[in-house]
Design a protein around this nucleic acid. Sequence first.
DNA 1: CTTTCGCCCTGAGTGC
DNA 2: TGCACTCAGGGCGAAA
Length: 293
Amino acid sequence: MPELPEVEVVRVGLDGAVVGAAVSAVDVLDERSLRRFDGPAEEFIEQLTGRRLGHPHRRGKFLWLPLDDVPLALVGHLGMSGQLLLRRIDDPLPRHLRVSLHLDTVSRGAMRLDFVDQRVFGSLALDELVPASDARERSDPLIPRAVVHIARDPLDPLFDDDAFVAALRRKRTGIKRALLDQTLVSGVGNIYADEALWAVKLHYDRPAESLSRTTANELLAVLRAVFAKALVEGGTSFDDQYLNVNGQAGSFVHSLNAYGRQGEPCPRCGGPIVRESFMNRGSHFCPRCQRPI
DNA sequence: CTTTCGCCCTGAGTGC
DNA sequence: TGCACTCAGGGCGAAA
């Protein structure tokens, strides 16, 4: 499940390998993967072919590569099951391949960048680069228009802790809903929301406005720690739904304390972890450690 | 304005 | 063996 750590692993994996690479050809095998692109597939192909790719950027779960000479970026979102795989040009085509870019890379010759996505919740697009609405300095990088409403993530050096804590405590909703709101804080998905709430002993439906400043700051600190540890371990891979650009799984699944561990003992108190349906998702928590209100 | 809901999608798993 | 059904969930537009 690609959340912040997984997308960052992909970003780092792309950096270096694709910077300066020229797009020599584009194959769109499934137009549904271009649903966020404002135009037909032919236009996507035409605008991308012949361009060179710049350093990959990320905000939350969105990833983009600026194109040379034009104020456009190739924007990717992995959705539930998306993968960006760097393959040799003559490697066999993987199952669920939706879009494939042929690249003339600087250091590795002819390569393919394959966008693979079983469930088609992810997407590729070309989008105009505009100044960020929360830019602090004129030197701040431009971001795709479709990403302007996404908040910074907790690992962003310009993330504003005080503003986040204040905004969180104004939310009239449950704490997990608030964490999953990408306009409040980005990069958090179901797995890391459950892990952070377990670590700070908060019930998923605890009203956000009931959190003290101290607790809200602890939650933020825990979120950063979970993200950082998951990043070091290469992210969380379930059923190979998430793989890095070289097709390798991450190992953070072995460090999960709550997510996916229903019926197993809570690593802190030994009581059973419970899974409840909430927001059309599974919420995993320890009823003994994480009490509502 | 804010918050919540339903839809998009596929394949693995389950029950009969 | 086959078929219907459930489940996983990020983001977005519409509804409340």
